[in-house]
C-alpha cells in the first residue's frame, strides 16, 4: 500500500507539470461549463452538452492519460528504476489507476454542477464506472506500447471510436447499431434517461461484458509484456 501511495503522490505532483495530461483532465469540464452556459438552443434536451461531453470525457481523458503515463515511464526507463526499487508492477498500475480515476472524478464533479441534486450521485456513479473501464483499456495500451509514439498511435483510433461513436450514433442509425456494443454508448443512453429500471439491464450487461473483456485483455497484456523489463 505504501508504494501505491508513493505513486499517487508522484502523479499528483506531476499533474501541473505534465501539460499533455493536464489538458486532458481539464478540457472537457471547462468546455462543458462554458458551452452549457453559452449555448441556448430552442428544443435542445436539458443538459445535452453535459451528457454528450461526459461520454467524450470517459472515452478520452482516462484512456489517454493512463496510456501516456505508462508509456512515458517505459520510454524514459523510469519504470524500470521503480521496479528495481521494489515497486511491484501491480502497485504501480494501481497507483496510476487510482490517481487518474480520482482526477477524472473531480472533473466529473465539476460537470455535475448542472444536474439536479437527486441526480448527482447517480451521474457520478455512472461516470465512475465509465472511467474505471477506460482506465483498464488505457492500461492495456500503456502496457502494450513500448514508447509514447506507439501509445498515441494506438490510443487515437480507440479514443475516436469510444468518444465519437456515441455522438455520431445520435445522427445515424447504422452507426447506432454498431455503437450500441460500446460501453460509452450505453453510458450515453443511461445518462439520457437517468433512471434505473428494467430497460437499464441490457445496457448494464453490455457494460459488464465490455469491462470483462478489457480486464481479460489487461491481464493478458500484463502477463505477456512483463512490465518494467
Amino acid at each position: 500500500m505504501k508504494n501505491v501511495i508513493v505513486i499517487i503522490k508522484k502523479q499528483i505532483k506531476d499533474t501541473i507539470k505534465n501539460k499533455t495530461v493536464l489538458i486532458q483532465f481539464v478540457l472537457f469540464p471547462v468546455m462543458t461549463l462554458i458551452m452549457e452556459n453559452a449555448m441556448k438552443i430552442k428544443d435542445m434536451p436539458e443538459l445535452f452538452i453535459t451528457k454528450l461531453f461526459s461520454v467524450m470525457y470517459i472515452g478520452m481523458a482516462p484512456l489517454t492519460a493512463v496510456a501516456a503515463i505508462i508509456s512515458e515511464e517505459k520510454e524514459k526507463n523510469t519504470l524500470r528504476v521503480l521496479m528495481m526499487a521494489n515497486v511491484a508492477p501491480g502497485q504501480y498500475l494501481t497507483g496510476v489507476g487510482i490517481y487518474v480515476w480520482t482526477v477524472c472524478m473531480a472533473g466529473a464533479a465539476v460537470m455535475a454542477t448542472g444536474f439536479e441534486q437527486k441526480d448527482i450521485l447517480l451521474y457520478l456513479a455512472t461516470m465512475g464506472i465509465g472511467f474505471a473501464i477506460s482506465i483498464v483499456l488505457g492500461g492495456c495500451i500503456g502496457i502494450f506500447a513500448n514508447n509514447q509514439m506507439a501509445a498515441t498511435s494506438l490510443v487515437m483510433p480507440v479514443m475516436a471510436v469510444l468518444s465519437f461513436g456515441p455522438m455520431l450514433a445520435l445522427f445515424n442509425d447504422t452507426i447506432e447499431k454498431a455503437a450500441r456494443f460500446l460501453y460509452t454508448q450505453q453510458i450515453r443512453v443511461f445518462l439520457d434517461n437517468m433512471t434505473v429500471d428494467r430497460s437499464t439491464g441490457k445496457g448494464a450487461v453490455i457494460i459488464a461484458v465490455n469491462a470483462a473483456v478489457l480486464i481479460l485483455l489487461f491481464f493478458t497484456a500484463f502477463k505477456r509484456k512483463e512490465l518494467g523489463k
Binding site: 501511495i5 508522484k10 506531476d14 523510469t78
Partner: peptide, 23 residues
Amino acid sequence: DEFGVYERFSCIENLKIFADIYG
C-alpha cells in the same frame, strides 16, 4: 546508463520519490 530520471521534477523531488519508497 539507460535508467532515466523524472525530467519534469527537480533533483530533490526525484529523490523524494525514492526516499518514500525506501522509507
